[in-house]
Computed example of a mutant assay.
Amino acid sequence: METKQSLTYKLGGQLEINRLGYGAMQLTGTGVFGEVADRENAKKVLQSAVASGVNFIDTAEAYGPKLNESLIADALYPYKKDLVIATKGGFNRPGPNQWVPNGRPDYIRENIEGSLQRLKVDTIDLWQLHRFDPAVPVEETLGPVVEAVKAGKIRYVGLSEVNIEQIERAEKVIPIVSVQNLYNLGNRQWEEILDYTAKRNMAFIPWFPLASGPDKLAEKIDRIAAKHGATTSQIALAWLLKRSANILLIPGTKSIDHLEENLQSARIELSEEEFAELSK
């Protein structure tokens, strides 16, 4: 008999969160730069997410930059008791669609302090290093993070877009509870990292989770979606939920209807046969 998949996950073994969360990156201007076009709508999307049971929201200092974190506080502060907000640091944003890694300790320290103020929190539940900076040893980059954890300003630490060697190098400096890499039904280049995090009891947070993959998958997905009365995107998310119990999903959207559609994916449990067919 198939066991029912769990829809919750304990981050760091402690914080119980619903595996279908919300990624706030789209609530910014074009190129993830500047203020979101319709701020009132953006606030309503965030409020609807939390009202619908989302208790894990992913943001970053670099989204806007800075404006996305302030928006979350405007929409949701004072926060619901069990709401976990994850943010990231370590990117310069000179302009739209421009992302320049900056792992200098003074910059990381400034990112952390700024995130605390903008999110209106005393402790960041999950702070993630957005990228390793090739110009700065990660041991130096993580120095201010270690200080912030000791000071109670950060609870847990994660990494983004990393390989196994980088995870292990960072872990010599500080415990790592999560990895956020590009991964979806159509792009599985980080398969090995996902399996590694599952073995190590780390959360794996795929970014760009809604991509449903190449055309060769389209016919299969359409057929399975029709059987479940679901959309292609919902099947892409349901596949990720089944793929590994440590996957936390953060699909983003500017639309309340689309938000509700994404959250309904948790109700779809693919059969072993359907999962295997999509995994080929």
Rank of each mutant, 00 (worst) to 15 (best):
L27P: 03
N102M: 05
N92A: 13
P101L: 09
K254Q: 13
L159V: 04
M202K: 02
A245L: 03
G90M: 02
A203F: 01
E2Q: 15
A225N: 09
P175A: 14
N92D: 13
G143P: 03
A203C: 06
I17A: 04
A276M: 12
Q189P: 02
R19C: 07
Y156F: 15
K150G: 14
L126P: 02
I164V: 15
N246D: 12
K216M: 10
K199S: 13
S279Q: 10
L241V: 09
R267T: 12
V149I: 13
Q180I: 10
T59R: 02
K120V: 01
N163G: 15
V145S: 01
M25D: 04
S115L: 06
R169D: 15
W190T: 14
Y156P: 03
I174W: 00
N187S: 14
Q264W: 09
G143S: 12
G29Q: 04
N18G: 14
L210R: 08
D74K: 00
M202D: 03
V36R: 02
I108Q: 00
I57Y: 02
I268V: 13
Y196P: 05
A245M: 09
T3Y: 14
I176M: 02
I164C: 13
G34I: 00
I250N: 06
L159F: 11
F275N: 12
N246T: 08
A225C: 11
E139P: 06
G186R: 09
Q180C: 11
E261P: 05
D215M: 13
P105H: 11
V32G: 00
F208T: 14
P214Q: 09
S255P: 07
D215R: 12
K254A: 06
N92P: 09
A148L: 10
V157E: 00
N163L: 10
R243C: 03
P209F: 07
E2M: 15
Q128G: 01
